[in-house]
Amino acid sequence: MLIPCPWCGDREDAEFKYGGAADVAYPKDPGSVDDQAWAGYLFFRPNPKGRFPERWYHAAGCRRWFNLVRDTATHEIVT
């Protein structure tokens, strides 16, 4: 699988570390968050069959993080 690093271009996925779902935000006011919301933040992530916005880290290259959208059913890079 070729991963398009915005800085280095298409590189083999062996060069990257995977960061999972994109846009998982730390709770704004952690002190006021209940157990349900904490569980959501810690353990529950989207797991779609299809388009998935996700994080990648070019560990053996430029060492920068970036997001992309990949189709988890086909491995096609969408954006």
Binding site: M1, E12, D13, A14, Y18, N47, F52, T72, A73, H75
Partner: peptide, 13 residues
Amino acid sequence: DPYNSYAQRGSPH
């Protein structure tokens, strides 16, 4: 394999 997938295949490395 580290990434999410439903494709029933992984990476050769």
